[in-house]
Design a protein around this nucleic acid. Structure first.
Length: 263
DNA sequence: ATGGTCGTTGCACGA
């Protein structure tokens, strides 16, 4: 039995955050790290910076927007950059998957729905349906799966600072939450919720209005693992320290989520 | 109180 430390972090520009990511990795020593919003083209992704620290990497990005990566020190192979045949356009540069040791790992950056009456909201729901198809595919071929990333959905009211503030907004609407439950119906469990049932444990805080200091956040960064791993979740945390900092050490607006699995 | 801040690109826009 070995302990596998899995983490996911929307870094809001890897170029702007690289030094901070390096310091965090040195302290936390994740075995597998999923990144979102690298905002890099594949050619600009710092493959050698990661390999110098003992990590292989797979990146999918077009630059400027989106961009996701899987970084691993327990092996990395069979890289896929779409959720399946015919989904290249939908997948955008928001999906990359790789096999890392015993796990199939996907780093996902679910589209922001913007508003309930936006076409982007429909794209978001379609994207999540496609992701459920991928979960079914991995289950059918017997792979243990970890879907890690920024889902832009708060699964239930415990995951928002004030449900009343979100009436009629995205991230909390019933169709979005149903899409997360559909992933669970495909055999995935929210690893963080295996250990914690409290409200107010957030992973994202708006940069504006001092939201972080006033505890106005949401839990939208998730690690969804195969149900067969439920009893192997040993430890989990949202590392709020990584959300701290000011002018000289700017944080992302997301904190990393860390999950330790006994595999 | 319809504001606020950050990262990117280029003199707004997405989140």
């Amino acid at each position: 039995m070995t302990r596998l430390r899995l983490a996911t972090w929307n870094v809001n520009s890897l170029r702007a955050r690289l030094e901070r990511v390096g310091e965090w990795m040195r302290q936390v020593e994740p075995d597998i790290l999923c990144l979102q919003e690298t905002k890099l083209a594949d050619a600009a992704f710092p493959v050698e910076w990661f390999s110098a620290r003992g990590y292989e990497s797979a990146h999918h990005g077009a630059g400027q927007w989106n961009g996701v990566a899987v970084v691993s020190r327990v092996g990395l192979g069979d890289v896929e950059r779409t959720m399946g045949p015919g989904t290249e356009t939908l997948s955008e540069s928001r999906f990359v998957a790789a096999t890392c040791g015993p796990l199939r790992v996907a780093s996902v950056y679910v589209p922001n729905g913007r508003s309930l009456d936006s076409e982007h909201y429909l794209t978001k729901l379609a994207w999540l349906r496609q992701l459920a198809g991928l979960a079914a595919f991995e289950r059918e071929r017997g792979m243990s799966l970890a879907l890690c990333g920024d889902f832009n959905v708060a699964p239930d009211d415990r995951d928002v600072w004030d449900p009343r503030a979100f009436e009629g907004a995205t991230h909390v609407s019933e169709p979005e939450r149903e899409a997360i439950r559909a992933l669970e119906a495909e055999g995935l469990v929210d690893a963080f919720r295996v250990l914690y049932d409290q409200s107010g444990l957030f992973s994202w805080w708006d940069y504006r209005g001092g939201a972080f200091h006033q505890h106005r956040g949401m839990r939208i960064d998730l690690v969804l693992v195969s149900a067969s791993l439920r009893d192997r979740v040993r430890w989990a945390v949202v590392d709020r320290n990584a959300r701290k900092g000011g002018k000289e050490n700017q944080p992302s607006d997301h904190a990393p989520v860390v999950v330790d699995l006994e595999v």
